[in-house]
């Protein structure tokens, strides 16, 4: 094991040969991906538990996601995986030009995915279908900025007299944008629906009948092109736990999105190296390893898509 071993400048001093170095890098990457899978498994478990506890939230919430967009994104990501695999192949077979083209195409695939995701996020934003109780409006689409959890849900505050509690929904729905007065209630004393109605001025529709003003508001809502008169008519009244679905949706897709962005960064890095002619049949470890990562990102999306979009 002499030091200046081999003619390959990319061989680290502590390896015997390129083969050992390459197989080690690959093993390392597989282990890192095992870690990634466990990371997302945590999220999938959260998904399972929360869906089991709140099936109505998931049944309601998934309808608001755009299946067409999701499907297109799946195809975009699958295609980018194909170009990535072709890029790795090209690097292994000394085709510098092809390597660069395929890597560039893969990068563009990632861009496409993020753009479509951005459009979807934006639509959710306009609908107010966002994460968390404070951000999820379901229908009215009015942003409630500056909402203070600490105060609103503090159980230290004195319970509100029942009469006032009953009166509040009327007041709030009259002036929807009015600042919400924090405090003055005990969260646990109310059911979720009541909490929302008090906080966000949502009307409490009598069972089986929808509040008229909701339909009016959403007649002009053009975020979705389903040609419907109103959310409530098409998708039914949001259950009180609907925000949980969107918390899970944003949690899963945002973390996946971060992985896509990191992957794009890595692809850009190997693209630059490829243009400099770093890779050949003798050394292509970096392309291979980045390729593995990109396939993992793709694979995770393939789980996310049916779990979030295709709930029956």
């Amino acid at each position: 094991m002499s030091h200046g071993h081999g003619d390959n400048p990319y061989l680290g001093h502590h390896w015997d040969n390129m083969e050992q170095q390459f197989s080690s890098a690959k093993l390392g990457m597989w282990l890192f991906m095992a870690q990634e899978i466990l990371f997302f498994s945590g999220l999938f478990c959260f998904y399972a538990v929360l869906r089991f506890n709140n099936p109505e939230a998931f049944e309601y919430g998934h309808q608001l996601l755009d299946k067409i967009m999701g499907a297109v994104n799946t195809i975009v990501l699958l295609l980018s995986s194909l170009t990535m695999a072709l890029g790795v192949r090209a690097a292994q077979t000394n085709q510098k030009r092809a390597t660069c083209i395929f890597l560039a195409l893969t990068f563009l695939g990632g861009c496409g995915f993020m753009v479509i995701k951005g459009i979807e996020y934006n639509a959710k934003g306009t609908h107010g279908s966002l994460w968390g109780l404070a951000n999820f409006k379901g229908e009215d689409g009015v942003q409630k900025v500056g909402f203070d959890y600490g105060k609103a849900f503090s159980t230290d505050l004195a319970p509100e007299p029942p009469a006032e509690r009953a009166a509040k929904p009327e007041v709030a729905s009259d002036a929807e944008t009015a600042a919400i007065e924090p405090g003055g209630m005990v969260a646990e004393a109310l059911d979720q629906k009541e909490v929302r109605s008090i906080l966000f001025g949502e009307a409490l529709p009598p069972p089986g009948k929808h509040g008229g003003h909701e339909e009016d508001e959403h007649a002009g809502d053009d975020g979705h092109d389903h040609g419907h008169a109103g959310h409530v008519e098409q998708w039914g009244t949001p259950p009180p736990t609907a925000h949980i679905f969107f918390s899970v949706y944003f949690g899963l897709t945002a973390l996946h999105g971060i992985h896509v962005v990191v992957g794009m960064g890595l692809i850009a890095w190997v693209f630059v190296n490829a243009r400099r002619g770093k890779y050949s049949s003798k050394y292509f470890t970096q392309v291979e390893v980045v390729g593995l990562y990109w396939h993992l990102v793709d694979l995770i999306w393939i789980f996310l898509f049916p779990l979030l979009y295709l709930i029956s």
Binding site: V49, S247, G251
Partner: peptide
């Protein structure tokens, strides 16, 4: 930060989770 409602019982979450 965002009050997702995963763990906070006041938001429909599950602290035992």
């Amino acid at each position: 930060f965002f009050g997702l409602g995963l763990f906070d019982p006041a938001l429909g979450g599950d602290p035992v989770l």
